[in-house]
Amino acid sequence: MPFIADLQKYKSLSIVGMDKNTGKTVCLNYVLSRLRNMGIKTAVTSIGIDGERVDQVFGSHKPEITLYEGMQFITSEKHYNTRQLLSKVIDVDTERTALGRLITAEVLCSGKVLLSGAGTTEKLRRQINAFENNNIDITIIDGALSRMSLASPSVTDAMILCTGAAVSPNIRQLIVKTRFTFDLINLPAIENHELANRLSQHTAGLWAVDNDGMIHDLEIPSVFLLEKSTQDIFSHGNTLYVSGAVSDKLLKYLSTKKNIAEQTLIVRDFTKLFVTPEVYAAYTKKGGRIQVLQQSKLVAVCLNPTSPHGYTIDSDDACLRLSEALGVPTWDVCKIKQ
């Protein structure tokens, strides 16, 4: 029974995919089937539209989610009315989504349902809190498309990363890409907790941190305006904090600076990094370092050997090589059930 015991430590778990069709739903079904009978009160929801019977992008088969007696879930009114299970309504949200209001319900007899959830991570956070207040032990969020934002440690405590043939049918490429995401997830958190706490208060802009841990406003509201600024961003030392998104552009810009080997760039968490492997590699190779305020807890890496185009890779080989490359076990979601 791989990694399930670890889940008891967390209040919330996100299941995110590196791409579509990387087996998030199969993985979720596995986790739910294991949590059943473990006496862990579980709630499930998703972000955005997901759980469609037929995949919205490729039109391929997509498994529904099986929920068990006693579990709670949130889905839209439309999907609630098409459920294939017995459940009771316990709350109805006033806000409307494209698929109607969000319904919170409790399963009376196990069966299948399509999940669709909140559109924003902010709303998701509120739902997780509400479940926690209702004595739910763990809330599991099914990711949509390749959205990573829900894996932010400010939203969910832990995550499962799904990868697979959909990312690349070439195992070597698949490993390179997965390894890159894995590295970002495992970026080290800054050691100074007190500083991390102070930095997290700043929700916008670019900030400098000097050697005494003092934070200085560089008065650049967004890193996208960096080039327009004439200010020396390293006048307070070599450490910068960016509260928002970080793109290739910023890393390239920083790579051109002469103090690149001494630089430390602090970001909120790995979901704020929108960088390509090449630019990231160039930045780190020159000596640049990236740290996060909060590190994400990666519980497991799961692999779906089948791509939506019908191509299947050798699962055993891929799992083995991924496990070696990442240094953590990787599970085939299709075989994990046995």
């Binding site: 059943r36 007696e69 017995l86 459940s87 309504v89 196990s110």
Partner: peptide, 28 residues
Amino acid sequence: AHFYIYESYDPRLGEVRNNLKQLSNKLN
């Protein structure tokens, strides 16, 4: 403020749902 079609609405519901539960649990 919970709602579903309660068993007490119809005497047949209890039995049907028991069967459903038993079979579902067995399959699970």
